[in-house]
Computed example of a mutant assay.
Amino acid sequence: MDDASHVRRAAREAVRDVDPGAFRDAIETVVESGSMAPGVLVVLSARAADEPVGFETVATRAAGTQLIYEGLRLTRALAHDAPWEDGDTDANLDVLVADVLVARGFYLLARTEAAERAVETVRAFGRDRTAASPADDPVGPLEADVLDLALVAGLTAVDAHPSAACREFVADLAGSFDGELPPADDAFDPTTRESLAAHVDTRVQPAGVGSATDP
């Protein structure tokens, strides 16, 4: 099973206890439809710093990062499309789904070194959406923020921290995508994986790693 499949399975397992079943199905539909790139980056980051790392070591962090992205991605789509204006009552369910995804993602990252970065990711998203209008491009800095969160979550799992160069590389990668994140295999082709590994520097341990502006 490849990394994307592992992440998807871990994300589904993280919401397996949600009831009722129909609501859980709606949550899993969102998880199934999204790119697994955030969760896969958690895995790749940890592996780049510590080659023997298995998926089990970072499964919780990968799932938490993935769920936060899915929840915020859905929230952004709802804010941009304004489905209520067309009388779409299904959007009410989508709002609850988005809330549960973000909340469960927070729960999974709460006791990790990435917790503060997760909070800042959601706060930044809120600021961006507050300033945006429905006519604005729905794609903003969310992808870059989430990939930075993934980088922090993955590296801190193996007692490493991202250097400024590594964070810049991931930010540039996010900016290279046209719209939402592509499938993980497209986002992280062999060349990109090699470049990521080259940028990972386990010797750099900046203070306050949770901040998006850390060096």
Rank of each mutant, 00 (worst) to 15 (best):
D81Q: 11
L67K: 04
A46N: 02
G54V: 15
Q66V: 07
G34V: 10
V42T: 03
L67D: 02
G39M: 07
V31A: 06
A22I: 14
L41T: 07
G54N: 06
A82V: 06
M36Q: 10
A59Q: 06
P52H: 03
G21C: 10
E32S: 11
D50R: 11
I68K: 00
A49C: 11
L41D: 01
S33F: 06
S45I: 04
Q66T: 09
Y69A: 13
D50S: 04
E85W: 03
A82D: 09
L72H: 01
D86M: 13
L72S: 05
P38W: 02
S45H: 10
P20R: 15
P20M: 11
E51F: 12
L44H: 01
R76N: 13
A63Q: 03
S35C: 08
V30L: 02
R73E: 09
V31D: 02
E32D: 13
G54I: 05
F23Q: 06
P83R: 07
D25R: 14
G64W: 00
P38C: 05
G54P: 06
P83N: 12
A82F: 03
I68Y: 01
A63L: 08
T65Q: 03
G21L: 09
S33V: 03
P52M: 07
I27T: 01
V42Q: 03
A79K: 09
V31R: 00
F55N: 00
V30S: 04
G39R: 00
A48R: 09
V43W: 01
G87R: 14
G34I: 10
S33M: 10
P20I: 11
A79C: 10
Y69C: 05
G21F: 12
E70R: 08
T60L: 15
T75H: 04
A49Y: 08
L74K: 01
F55P: 01
D19V: 13
V30E: 08
A82P: 06
V43I: 13
I68G: 00
R61I: 11
D81Y: 04
P52E: 08
G71H: 02
Y69M: 14
G87E: 10
D25F: 12
V42L: 14
T57I: 06
A37W: 02
G71A: 08
F55L: 07
R47V: 14
E32N: 09
A46K: 01
A37Q: 06
D25I: 13
G87I: 13
A49F: 05
R61M: 15
G87Y: 12
D86L: 15
D50T: 08
P20N: 08
E70C: 11
V40A: 04
T60H: 15
R24N: 09
F23G: 02
W84S: 12
A82C: 07
Y69R: 14
G87L: 11
L41Y: 06
A62W: 00
L74T: 00
V31P: 00
E28D: 06
V30Y: 04
T65H: 03
F23P: 02
V42S: 01
V58P: 00
T29C: 12
A26G: 06
R47Q: 13
Q66P: 06
P38N: 02
E56H: 15
M36A: 09
W84C: 08
G54R: 13
